[in-house]
């Protein structure tokens, strides 16, 4: 039993380590939140599942462990959802790779459609973009 517990906890630890690595090396907010929220929750799930097989577990703590598991699984992704949604609403920009050739080709085909568009934002011309474009 302890062996099963150790194996499951080890797998869970793998996911937690991966999530922290993702927190470090992912390029922007959305990729980080995406990678970390999922794998962190999965790691928490696996670690707690492994703890069910530990010999230290006694009767009254089973229900509490289930409750912690369920509430964490409900609350953590919702909290991250709220934060990411708010940041999206506040204008945080996703990280995009610019392939200039494809972009130019697409832009050419989109020329007619663009001419038909009356864009209040551009015509207003109140100011520049909110962040400096790397290019």
């Amino acid at each position: 039993m302890t062996l099963i517990a150790d194996i499951i906890i080890g797998i869970g630890m793998f996911f937690i380590v991966v999530s922290t690595l993702a927190l470090l090396i992912m390029p922007d907010l959305y990729t980080r939140a995406h990678a970390v929220a999922k794998s962190e929750t999965l790691g928490l799930l696996l670690v707690f599942l492994g703890l069910f097989f530990r010999p230290e577990l006694d009767g009254p703590s089973v229900g509490r462990l289930v409750a912690v598991l369920v509430f964490s699984l409900v609350a953590n992704p919702t909290a991250v959802h709220a934060l990411v949604r708010a940041s999206s609403r506040s204008g945080a920009l996703p990280w995009t790779v610019i392939d200039q050739e494809i972009a130019d080709a697409e832009l050419g085909t989109a020329q007619e459609r663009y001419d038909a568009v009356d864009d209040p934002v551009v015509s207003e011309a109140t100011g520049g973009p909110s962040e400096e474009d790397p290019r």
């Binding site: 995009t96 790779v97 610019i98 989109a110 459609r113 568009v117 934002v121 551009v122 973009p129």
Partner: peptide, 20 residues
Amino acid sequence: SRPRPTGVVPHGLLAERGRR
């Protein structure tokens, strides 16, 4: 309503935005 300076995502409507 603020203009979004994005890298060009070359599909459909977003391409227009990149053009702008």
